[in-house]
Computed example of a mutant assay.
Amino acid sequence: MKVLVVGASGATGRHLVNQLLIQGNEVKVIVRSTQYLPDAWKDNTKVQIITASILELSDEEMGKHVSDCNTVASCLGHNMNWKGIYGTPRRLVTDATKRLCSAIKTSSSNHPVKYVLMNTSGNQNRDLVEPISFAQKCVIGLLRVLLPPHVDNEKAADYLRTVIGQNDKHIEWVAVRPDGLIDENEVTEYEIYPSPIRSAIFNAGKVSRINVGHFMSELINDDKLWNKWKGQMPVIYSKASVSNSEK
């Protein structure tokens, strides 16, 4: 299996690439700079590093990069500083998703390509009834005004839901919604739910970035797991976080 990963240099993207390599996949990564990539990737014949800004690639280049891949995975996000939050591109995740999906559709693949998007538990799946409190609705409304990255995450998932949909012959998708992200060095037990089981704003749980990378890799490699969650927006929590919510 060959997987294209965008956002591979980020904190979660690195874990995803490592998990994919552990499972024996070939991996392409598109990164703006190789400066902070692990040396182990640079010396690994199963890793192809493409140095480019994802939104500056031509349609032809984008098509070339996806044409031999079974899966495209996006761990793109915005840096949590002033430039990352309020600078350009404000629709990095959405625009990259649109362009990658367009490239997949125009490629010569004769089978559906998997698209795995890392999203956020603060974004509702509007294909389901996911009730939230009035207070949380108010906070989400403020986030849409004050934090462009939140809107970017919403629009990227909405593009998959409403434009790609459930029956596209070229693309199957899953949008993974992690709760509060933390750093850990090893994969631990985690649990997956169709919708949040706690408030992402007022009672957020935790999940390690390595667990998110592991789950995304499992989705890519395990067809049974993929068929369970395709076309959905599963929420991931570390098991300890779920246990604490039940106390």
Results as ranks from 00 to 15, higher is better:
residue 1 M to K: 09
residue 1 M to C: 06
residue 4 L to I: 11
residue 5 V to W: 07
residue 12 T to W: 10
residue 13 G to V: 04
residue 13 G to D: 14
residue 16 L to N: 07
residue 17 V to K: 02
residue 18 N to Y: 07
residue 18 N to K: 06
residue 19 Q to F: 09
residue 23 Q to W: 00
residue 23 Q to K: 13
residue 24 G to D: 01
residue 24 G to N: 01
residue 28 K to T: 06
residue 28 K to V: 01
residue 29 V to I: 10
residue 29 V to C: 02
residue 36 Y to C: 05
residue 37 L to P: 07
residue 40 A to L: 02
residue 40 A to K: 06
residue 42 K to A: 13
residue 46 K to N: 15
residue 46 K to E: 02
residue 50 I to H: 15
residue 57 L to N: 04
residue 57 L to Y: 06
residue 59 D to S: 12
residue 59 D to A: 14
residue 61 E to T: 11
residue 64 K to Q: 15
residue 65 H to C: 14
residue 67 S to F: 04
residue 71 T to N: 12
residue 72 V to G: 11
residue 75 C to S: 15
residue 75 C to P: 07
residue 77 G to R: 02
residue 78 H to K: 11
residue 82 W to S: 12
residue 85 I to Y: 08
residue 86 Y to G: 09
residue 88 T to K: 11
residue 89 P to E: 13
residue 89 P to T: 05
residue 97 T to S: 09
residue 101 C to W: 00
residue 103 A to D: 06
residue 105 K to L: 04
residue 106 T to V: 08
residue 112 P to Q: 11
residue 113 V to K: 14
residue 113 V to G: 03
residue 113 V to T: 04
residue 116 V to A: 03
residue 116 V to Q: 02
residue 119 N to A: 15
residue 120 T to K: 02
residue 121 S to F: 00
residue 122 G to E: 05
residue 122 G to T: 14
residue 125 N to W: 04
residue 126 R to S: 14
residue 129 V to M: 02
residue 129 V to C: 08
residue 130 E to F: 00
residue 130 E to V: 09
residue 131 P to N: 03
residue 133 S to N: 06
residue 135 A to W: 06
residue 135 A to N: 03
residue 139 V to G: 03
residue 140 I to G: 00
residue 141 G to V: 05
residue 141 G to Q: 07
residue 141 G to L: 07
residue 142 L to Q: 06
residue 147 L to M: 13
residue 149 P to I: 09
residue 149 P to M: 11
residue 150 H to L: 15
residue 150 H to Q: 14
residue 151 V to A: 13
residue 152 D to T: 11
residue 153 N to R: 13
residue 156 A to S: 15
residue 157 A to H: 07
residue 159 Y to V: 03
residue 163 V to M: 06
residue 166 Q to V: 00
residue 170 H to T: 10
residue 172 E to D: 07
residue 178 P to M: 05
residue 179 D to V: 09
residue 179 D to T: 12
residue 181 L to A: 04
residue 181 L to S: 11
residue 181 L to D: 03
residue 181 L to H: 10
residue 183 D to N: 11
residue 184 E to W: 03
residue 186 E to V: 13
residue 187 V to K: 00
residue 193 Y to I: 02
residue 193 Y to R: 05
residue 194 P to A: 01
residue 195 S to I: 13
residue 195 S to G: 00
residue 196 P to M: 01
residue 197 I to T: 08
residue 205 G to D: 11
residue 207 V to W: 07
residue 207 V to P: 04
residue 208 S to I: 01
residue 208 S to A: 12
residue 213 G to Q: 04
residue 214 H to P: 00
residue 215 F to C: 05
residue 215 F to W: 05
residue 217 S to N: 06
residue 222 D to T: 14
residue 224 K to D: 10
residue 224 K to E: 12
residue 225 L to Y: 05
residue 226 W to P: 03
residue 226 W to N: 00
residue 227 N to D: 10
residue 228 K to C: 12
residue 228 K to L: 14
residue 230 K to Q: 09
residue 236 I to M: 03
residue 236 I to C: 00
residue 237 Y to T: 05
residue 237 Y to P: 04
residue 238 S to E: 09
residue 241 S to K: 01
residue 242 V to R: 03
residue 242 V to E: 11
residue 244 N to W: 11
residue 244 N to R: 06
